[in-house]
Simulated assay, not measured.
Amino acid sequence: MTGPKGARTSARLAESMLELIQRDGYSGTGLNTVVAHAGAPKGSLYFHFPEGKEALGERAVELAATRFADLLADAARQSATPGAAVRHLTTVLAGLVEESDYQLGCPVSVVTLEMGGRSERLRAACARTFESWIAPVTELLVTHGRPRPAARALATAAVSMVEGAMIVSRAQRSTEPLHHAAIALAALLDHDAGPTP
């Protein structure tokens, strides 16, 4: 069992893995680089992650899941409608992508594209993460009058569109794809939503 110091080291390793995946991809991130980036003792990685790189990658994906879910929750709290929440969220994401000079993207999409067909563990972690974003968007839409099946379909489309827009924004070195996605999604999510209960 690890104490507070061990927990901090484990968290630093996961944080470093997440940052490096965003910048260099999963395959381009070596364990020695993660340890150096985290400023952790060399033996700490296998002490905290005895199953190796996939276990650390899974933890990084879980960390990304939590952070994006927090952004979603914050956007929903600050917005009167689902469309406004998406606009708020994409503005935040556009700022993050632009501030990184288009070097950072969604680590979950990166891991899915690189490892989804090669690692069941990482594919499942990514699937759980996407579900953790789709579910609250579904609930937000239900709260605003959408029937649950339609809300689920729209939430899935919304998460997929934002993910795709982030990839296109990085490729084009422009936040326009994210802004265009926000406009389209706002119209879609708020159209005929019905009264708020």
Rank of each mutant, 00 (worst) to 15 (best):
G6V: 07
A7I: 08
S10E: 12
L13P: 09
E15D: 14
S16N: 04
L18M: 13
D24Y: 07
G28W: 03
T29L: 03
T29H: 01
N32D: 10
T33F: 03
V35K: 01
A36F: 04
A38T: 04
A38R: 00
G39Y: 00
K42D: 12
L45Y: 11
Y46D: 07
H48F: 13
H48C: 15
F49W: 04
P50K: 04
P50F: 05
E51C: 09
G52L: 04
A55G: 14
A55Y: 06
E58Q: 15
A64I: 00
A64K: 11
A65T: 13
A65V: 08
T66W: 08
A69H: 10
A75L: 06
A80N: 06
T81I: 01
P82W: 00
G83A: 09
H88R: 15
H88K: 14
T91S: 12
V92F: 05
L93V: 13
L96G: 12
S100W: 00
Y102S: 08
L104P: 09
G105M: 03
P107M: 08
V111P: 03
T112G: 07
M115S: 13
G117N: 11
R123V: 06
C126W: 01
A127T: 11
R128I: 03
T129N: 04
F130A: 14
W133Y: 07
P136I: 02
T138W: 02
R146F: 06
A150K: 11
R152L: 12
L154Y: 05
L154P: 10
A158Y: 03
V159L: 06
Q172I: 07
R173V: 09
S174A: 05
T175C: 08
P177E: 01
L178C: 06
A182M: 01
L185E: 02
A186P: 01
D190Y: 01
G194S: 09
G194V: 02
P197F: 00
